[in-house]
Amino acid sequence: MKAKRIVALISILVILAAGVYAVVDAYSSGNYQTYDGGENAKAIVADPDYYDTSEASGVAEPIVKKNLNDTMAANNVAAVVFDFRGFDTLGESFILLTSIAGAYVILSVSKKKKKEDEE
């Protein structure tokens, strides 16, 4: 029991140290901002074409530029979730299926045991 607690404490400390290091490193390198204030956010919402996508490259290039031609989904996130990474979503939904099946098995067994104990 005591060894378990020490292991848990050490792992929590390691995770905490990694988090603090990540924050300090991101702050000191200057790359911590996700929105640089360069574009007018209200104008992008009103007219999505206002955002300049001509420089998108790498993985973002097919998602940003070819999305409407390839999928015709107005919601880009839905296109990413169900088409570009559809296999990942399959695994994601099967996690839910497996966890609910496990909960059903464990909880129904414990319910039966409770009744038998009462009798």
Partner: peptide
């Protein structure tokens, strides 16, 4: 997971995105 039957209707219609739409419905039901 390739998107098929997506060329009916205009962009923004309810059923315009082919199998993405139906996969979204099945995940929602699930």
């Amino acid at each position: 997971c390739q998107n098929v039957f997506y060329d009916n209707g205009a962009v923004g219609d309810l059923i315009s995105a082919g199998t993405i739409t139906y996969m979204g419905y099945s995940v929602g039901f699930k």
